[in-house]
Nucleic acid binder design. Structure first.
Lengths: 128, 128
DNA sequence: ATTTATACTTACCCAAAAGAGAGCGTAAGG
DNA sequence: CCTTACGCTCTCTTTTGGGTAAGTATAAAT
């Protein structure tokens, strides 16, 4: 290879860690997780149905499932008020906030480059 | 709501843009795309089978499919050398590199917080 | 003449993910 | 007494993701 002059040293990454990181990203980069993360970041504490209304398009099943997963991963705190009808509040944990900050780069990339992507697609489709 | 004192102003985001951004993230946050992005970022230009060997676990079908998608989105440049047997090289475009930088935050978050996530899971599973 | 290598495409199939929709328990409000 | 609200759970069906295996074209190597 003549080019690629600045090949940075690759510190030998622990492959087990790498697999875990991939799993994590796969889990966390899920569509609904991202949406809920964003909404809780913007709105603070919300109830089940409030989140459901804000996410728009999500089924109750996926809402429950995703929130459970996020709770298990330590991203959200779930607070049950033992009243009737039930009242359950969700809010981001510190970890949840930190993840939402980490995703800022991707969000801003997407916002900034959506035009380029669409242009690339149009060009590609025109060629084909 | 008594808390949530620092509610930042939400500039009314164009909902169409928001949907597009979500689509983009959904597309781009795909497992194979992320892996290929990483490998091309680390290795520069690679051939089809070289990528296949490095990704490990990917089938030809998904490799082709993901590379096509990435090409269409303008993330990779595909160069065909008209020789026999065929020789096709893939490399990241500027856009591809910028996306991989954007994901750095998430990568480092995952690496840094994998312990916390696993601890949260263990605690959650113990309670249940 | 047969094999090998490359970069695919196509067809078929399976399992997992997700959507749709009904049900549940209880109590306040009409 | 019937409805509504809430936060689910359960079941059923559809959709999607992804694996396997075979086929293709061609020329160099055996």
């Amino acid at each position: 290879m003549s080019e690629n002059p600045v090949r940075q040293e690759e510190p030998p990454v622990d492959p087990a860690l790498e697999r875990l990181v991939h799993d994590m990203i796969g889990r966390v980069a899920d569509k609904w997780t991202l949406l809920i993360l964003e909404i809780l970041e913007d709105n603070g504490e919300l109830r089940f149905t409030q989140i459901g209304r804000k996410v728009e398009g999500i089924s109750q099943k996926m809402l429950t499932q995703t929130l459970r997963q996020m709770e298990r991963d330590g991203l959200v705190k779930r607070t049950v008020h033992p009243v009737i009808p039930p009242r359950v509040e969700y809010r981001l944990t510190e970890l949840g906030h930190s993840l939402s900050y980490a995703f800022c780069g991707v969000w801003t990339w997407a916002e900034a480059n959506i035009g380029k992507v669409e242009a690339a697609r149009a060009e590609f489709d025109a060629r084909a």
